[in-house]
Each structure stands twice: as structure tokens, then as C-alpha cells.
């Protein structure tokens, strides 16, 4: 009886998940077309901002009934303004007045079409302290691609796997800049959507209250606190767009090809298999799930 109930429940869950996966994969196929070929050209001045939540989904409640969705939007518009004046092109997945917000899958689709240098997912909460930076909990590919297999489609839920190292580098850069601005930042990995679906260096930022010694903590609703964070992020992103981390890595091959890389490939071409190794996109390993 219990066993039957269990099987029924799992079937239900799997069926719905399968439906979601199938839909997501179709969307992924439409937006990213199988595996990223030899190089994944990165637009160094493009940043995607994802103000999380929206519409009826308000997220956390901060202070006096302020919805998280409004804070994320406020931070996003501040960041957008700061980045634009610094020569960035900014794509946002949600704007003010958008009554029907996009799903996390749809947001990832938008981001994946842009080949952005950074994808920043914005959250805010009333608990904890400081700024929390999260990257995907997928594992970086650690094996050579199977050269005989040809291009292998990237599973939607593992789209981020080729960018895990860059995302970690980006998170460290952001964290360092926040630290320099005296804003305590912590790094971590979290199982949150759409991090695993993003094909860009991606970091989720959660603003928690800013603790101050001998005074009340500053909530994430504070405009001044938000601006300080935005300024630090802008400084970090300005440095990031020229970062070597954005250049393609031989074993990750997720960045754009520069002339230096093209020369390296040309040189390696003579040695046959080595060239193939450099040019072929990695086969993503089976998704390593579970928070570490």
C-alpha cells in the first residue's frame, strides 16, 4: 500500500519534471543549438541583469511589507545606470511595470542569446548579514572531450557546467571589490534557478542586512546601501571585461577566440589530435547535483 503510494508519487513527480525538462530542452535547443561550437564568442561589454521574482511571486518580505521583487528591481535599475555610464550594454530580464514576469527558464533563454560577459541574478532578504555571492553547484568538466562523439547536446540543467570556472572567478572578483568597499561578502554555491541553465559567467547576489558594530543593521531596502553595492559591482565588472578569465581556456573552450588563441590553434593544428583537443567543445559530464 505504502509502496504503491510511493511509486505513484514519484511517477507524478517524474512525469511533471520530465515535462518541464523536455520543454526546457526544446527551448534550449532553440536558443543555444546543441553544443557551443569551437568557441563561444563573448560580448565583453554586455551584462545581463536578472532582478529575481516579479508579478504575483514577490519573493521574501523585507521590513515593513516591502516585497523582495521591488528591491531586486531597484538594485537592478541602479546597476543598469551605473554600468551604462561605464560603457556597458545591459540586458534586463525584468522591467518595472512588467505584470507578467518571465519564468526562470525564459530568463535563462534571454541571457543565453546574448553571449554576455556576466550574468548577475539579484536577490535580497531580511535575514543573514552582508552580501552573499552564489555560483552554480555544478562541477566543472574535468575530463577530455570524447573526440569521436562529435557534438553532444548540452542538457538544459547543465548548461552552466562549461562556465563554472569563469563564474567562480567572477564571484571572487565581485567579492574582492565588495570587500574593498567595506561591504562584507561571502561566497557559496546554491541550488537556485536559473544558475544551472545560464551560458555565461553567472553569479547570484543576495543582499542581506548590513551589520554595523554598535548600531542597528542596515536593511537591504536602504537606498544608500544598495548604491554602495552597485558601485562596488561596477568597479569589479569594469575590471572583469578585460579579465583573462574571459578568454577561452583550452580545456574549457568556452570563451571567445582571440587572435592569440587562433595562433595557438593554428600551431597546434600541425600536431593533429592536439588541435582537435583545443577546438572541440567539452562534453559536459553528467550533472553533479547536490549542494557541496
Amino acid at each position: 500500500m505504502r509502496k504503491h503510494a510511493a511509486v505513484l508519487l514519484v511517477t507524478l513527480a517524474s512525469a511533471s519534471t520530465a515535462a518541464i525538462t523536455v520543454r526546457a530542452q526544446t527551448q534550449a535547443a532553440a536558443s543555444i543549438k546543441a553544443n557551443a561550437p569551437a568557441g563561444w564568442p563573448i560580448n565583453h561589454t554586455l551584462v545581463v541583469l536578472d532582478p529575481a521574482h516579479g508579478g504575483t511571486e514577490g519573493g521574501a518580505v523585507l521590513g515593513d511589507h516591502v516585497a523582495e521583487k521591488d528591491i531586486t528591481l531597484a538594485v537592478a535599475s541602479k546597476l543598469r545606470a551605473a554600468l551604462s555610464t561605464n560603457g556597458f550594454n545591459v540586458v534586463s530580464t525584468r522591467d518595472a511595470g512588467g505584470s507578467d514576469p518571465l519564468s526562470t527558464d525564459q530568463r535563462a533563454e534571454i541571457a543565453n542569446r546574448t553571449h554576455a560577459a556576466a550574468c548577475i541574478v539579484l536577490h535580497a532578504t531580511a535575514t543573514g548579514s552582508g552580501v552573499h555571492l552564489y555560483t552554480s553547484d555544478l562541477q566543472a568538466p574535468n575530463q577530455d572531450p570524447d573526440l569521436t562523439a562529435g557534438f553532444v547536446p548540452i542538457p538544459w540543467d547543465a548548461a552552466q557546467s562549461g562556465f563554472v570556472r569563469q563564474s567562480a572567478d567572477l564571484a571572487v572578483s565581485l567579492s574582492t571589490a565588495l570587500g574593498k568597499a567595506h561591504l562584507p561578502a561571502t561566497l557559496g554555491q546554491a541550488p537556485i534557478r536559473p544558475l544551472n541553465n545560464l551560458m555565461c559567467p553567472a553569479v547570484a547576489i543576495e543582499l542581506s542586512p548590513l551589520a554595523a558594530p554598535g548600531a542597528a543593521a542596515t536593511p537591504a531596502t536602504d537606498g544608500n546601501y544598495q548604491q554602495q553595492v552597485v558601485n562596488a559591482l561596477t568597479v569589479a565588472l569594469r575590471a572583469w571585461r578585460d579579465s583573462p578569465a574571459l578568454l577561452p581556456v583550452a580545456d574549457a573552450s568556452t570563451g571567445g577566440q582571440t587572435s592569440a588563441q587562433s595562433k595557438a590553434i593554428a600551431a597546434a593544428e600541425a600536431t593533429g589530435r592536439a588541435a582537435a583537443k583545443v577546438r572541440t567543445s567539452p562534453t559536459p559530464p553528467p550533472a553533479q547535483k547536490g549542494p557541496q
Binding site: 508519487l9 507524478l12 513527480a13 511533471s16 519534471t17 518541464i20 521574482h53 511571486e57 519573493g59 521574501a60 523582495e68 536577490h123 540543467d157 546554491a190 541550488p191 537556485i192 534557478r193 553533479q288 547535483k289 547536490g290 549542494p291 557541496q292
Partner: peptide, 25 residues
């Protein structure tokens, strides 16, 4: 599962649609 049905997140954030590996956390 939440009340016998699959649900996207715990309460807006942590993904509840995936299968987690039981590891040392």
C-alpha cells in the same frame, strides 16, 4: 514533494524539482 506534488522551490529560492545527491554537506 510538497503535499504530494512537485513544486519549483522551497519558498522562492532553493530548487525542489531536481534530484539531489545525498552527500556530506
Amino acid at each position: 514533494l510538497v503535499d504530494g506534488r512537485s513544486r519549483e522551490t522551497l519558498n522562492g529560492h532553493a530548487d525542489l524539482l531536481r534530484t539531489y545527491a545525498v552527500v556530506n554537506t
